[in-house]
Simulated scan of single mutants.
Amino acid sequence: MTKTFLDSVQSRRSIYAISSEQVISDERIEEIVSHAVKHTPSAFNSQTGRVVVLLGEQSDRLWKITEDTLRKIVPAENFHSTEERMATFGGGYGTILFFEDMAIVESMMEQFVEYKDNFPVWSLQSAGMLQFVIWTALEDEGFGASLQHYNPLIDEDVKKEWELPASWKLLAQMPFGKPLMEAGEKEFMPVEDRMKVIK
């Protein structure tokens, strides 16, 4: 039976235990991410989302930068669990960095003054959709992934390391790899408490 879109939405979960084993080709990863970047909607078609795909040693480098940054602020006696987390994320196949180009957001605010306060909010909404689309698509291909948020602690080092524009604001990091175990059970609030149908 063919997997439906809603099946894919349901099966997308946070997977933390991942390996660096190749699941699909790098070319296929690039195809998935570029398709998502192109087709995920944005307010006024502003297309503010920016993505950097780090594979192999480049992904390892990100998590080394993150570990080094956290080592400066996490007490040494508490650092072991942080070190283990960094090793887990760095042990995957790659990491996707999600940014918003704030130069475009600010330009839209200037062009459409009556909606000025909404553009930063709409930018985040579009960013969330892009993250979800890529996450779900990677899951469909057999990867496990999770969404991490070590920004703004690592922002400047990340921009410097990969020579990224100053206007790109880092929002999230998505380590992905071959799942080593399935996600645990998930609890749900009653849907009727979260949804109303009015006819």
Rank of each mutant, 00 (worst) to 15 (best):
S8D: 10
V9K: 11
R13T: 09
S14Q: 10
R28S: 02
E31I: 01
H35Y: 11
A36L: 05
H39W: 13
P41R: 14
P41D: 13
S42D: 03
F44I: 01
G56Q: 14
D60H: 14
R61A: 14
K64E: 12
I65M: 13
D68H: 12
D68Q: 15
L70A: 13
V74R: 15
A76E: 15
A76N: 11
N78W: 10
S81Y: 06
T82H: 14
A87R: 14
F89Y: 13
Y93L: 09
L97A: 09
L97D: 08
E100T: 07
V105P: 06
M109V: 00
S123W: 03
S123V: 01
A127R: 01
G128A: 15
F132W: 13
I134A: 02
L138G: 00
E139V: 07
E141A: 13
E141D: 08
A145R: 01
A145P: 00
A145F: 01
L147C: 04
H149V: 01
P152I: 00
L153K: 12
I154G: 10
D155H: 04
A166T: 08
W168R: 11
L170V: 00
L170H: 04
F176A: 04
E182V: 12
E182S: 13
E182I: 09
P190Y: 05
V191S: 12
